[in-house]
Nucleic acid binder design. Structure first.
Lengths: 160, 160
DNA sequence: CGGAGATATTTCAAACATAAAATATTTATG
DNA sequence: CATAAATATTTTATGTTTGAAATATCTCCG
């Protein structure tokens, strides 16, 4: 130990900074999420999880299995069951039994579901554009790049 | 309309870019949140919302009312009731009736709660530091700055 | 073929979350 | 003082959400 063995601010600081960043990130995400949730409910009488599922299905014409959905949306397996149940009750999605694997279902949007999603998605995109209006193209691209680094390298990780 | 009236890519692009940014942001937040949730549960048998409440209370020696808590954590009023109920059942927080206003409660950490939080918070900070290790001090500061812009200007907004 | 382990989904209990209604208390106004 | 409006919290109903256990099916190895 030297005379100036005072704990170096830099060493402590990065961890505190990371903590602040996490709190900002969480706050930003919650802010946007709750705003979107409220608008979806008021304007289209649909819940955010239901919208998320429909958005995932809209990108895949061949449909997705329950497990694929749960992984893409990062929600638990059991959770997807209930959301699909409710969407299916409204005839917005349907479950198809693939011939090859009787354990799984292929979930698809119905024509009604696809049509409804197209309308909602358009409004949704507008809302997001409005909520993120502070960011110009450059900033947006920068943020996307930085955040990608985060979501990327976790794939071989500690996920359960 | 001119001859080259092709829809300008730039105009469409910014809205799509914003959408991509939002999806990245949400994905990053969910990734970190679920990782922290799992570790809190496994290592300390505490839920993330309970930790969030304790973290808020730990910053305020004078305690907070239910409404202050619900606003700070951006969760509904009724939600806080249940979380506090469970924390109080474990003697981690207590409700005090202020003399001045019998409608409200002051919620505080108990000594037991404060002691337990100190331990958990230390681990929590380490986890966040680890999960955000990809970001150096400069990047972290940049991200904080950019995300602050977002959370800031929404205060007079459409919040319910 | 037969069974062990892996995979896909559902079911279950507990906790979280929201929005709206109900209750209790305070404050403002006449 | 009386009462209407505002504020703080809880209650209620509904809908996620998770993690674990249960069920069904598939795959692989002997």
């Amino acid at each position: 130990m030297t005379a100036n063995a005072k704990p170096r601010p830099a060493a402590r600081s990065i961890s505190k900074q990371h903590l602040r960043l996490w709190l900002r990130l969480l706050r930003a995400a919650r802010l946007i999420e709750s705003e979107l949730r409220e608008r979806l409910r008021k304007e289209f009488a649909i819940t955010l999880p239901q919208f998320d599922v429909m958005a995932a299905l809209a990108r895949k014409d061949d449909g997705m299995t329950m497990t694929e959905l749960s992984r893409m949306l990062m929600v638990s397996n059991g959770n997807v069951t209930g959301i699909i149940d409710r969407l299916a009750a409204e005839k917005l999605v349907l479950r198809q039994a693939p011939a090859t694997d009787r354990r799984s279902f292929i979930v698809r949007l119905t024509p009604k579901g696809a049509a409804q999603f197209a309308v909602v998605a358009k409004a949704h995109e507008g809302w997001v554009d409005e909520l993120l209006a502070d960011f110009d193209a450059t900033q947006t691209e920068d943020l996307i790049q930085m955040l990608s680094a985060l979501s990327a390298d976790r794939h071989g990780g500690t996920q359960s």
